[in-house]
Design a protein around this nucleic acid. Sequence first.
DNA 1: GGACTGATTTAGAATTATTCTAAATCTTGA
DNA 2: TCAAGATTTAGAATAATTCTAAATCAGTCC
Lengths: 143, 143
Amino acid sequence: MSAVEKKLNQDFSERLNTSGLRFTPQRQHVYDVILHKRDHPTAEEVFIRTKKTMPEISHATVYNTLDALVKCGLVRQVQLERGATRFCPNMEEHCHYFCDSCGEVFDVPLQKDSTAMPRPKGFKVDHYDIAVHGLCADCAKKK
Amino acid sequence: MSAVEKKLNQDFSERLNTSGLRFTPQRQHVYDVILHKRDHPTAEEVFIRTKKTMPEISHATVYNTLDALVKCGLVRQVQLERGATRFCPNMEEHCHYFCDSCGEVFDVPLQKDSTAMPRPKGFKVDHYDIAVHGLCADCAKKK
DNA sequence: GGACTGATTTAGAATTATTCTAAATCTTGA
DNA sequence: TCAAGATTTAGAATAATTCTAAATCAGTCC
């Protein structure tokens, strides 16, 4: 393992710890897999890819790990269509251009100051899906 | 049926026709149900509500009808969390404030000219989910 | 009106996505 | 070292959605 990789794992470990979670080989492998190919895989796809380097990993662990990564802010959970949830390692503020025909996903950074949002060349926009997540007034009070 | 209702059904029927779809009692009931209580039900919830006035309707028909309504632009399909898809009868440009704790959904109209988006009183924002749907350059060419 | 065509509906099976369960294993701290 | 709690595992269970094949329905052509 290179020095850079060691550093990454240390950061990762600390990130987990601050959320009360442990650094485990399984979590490391899953996170590696997601960072390695920076696309928008489903949990099933992450499972398949992780099996290549860790054949004994289970389904439940992948789900559990993905939830852990989402909880400590290392991965974003993305709902683009009916069916499987996807996961995204890009934690910068960005939006997803999603092709309803082929399923391709394009990340586009949000630029607060520009009036027109840039978009992938040739992309034909049909509609926007904007969801703001958080806590409603009542739930915010309770916490 | 009142004159207003007749008019609505006529509009609905025409809307279906222009998409090559037929106006059927089942579709009418499902659409009624969605318009009546303007929240964000899942397909299962729509199924249950529709059964009250049309007990013999089937699961598949509800799914089929919801897809039809989405296709002809009368209903919006919304993915807010893992699990069931929701449907929204509000076709104005708006975004959804979603409470990750209790699941409440608030519609907020998009106002292009204002700098700060209004939000439900007391809502504590965690993160934005912005998805732009459409066709990528390659797929747009093929169509 | 009757036959034909294709759309729609239905029950139920099948598939897909996700969560749950209980036992085994591992980690950490006393 | 031991106890407590976190994690992992295989597989079962559940939830969400789609598929299938047969039956029904609506509109069109004669």
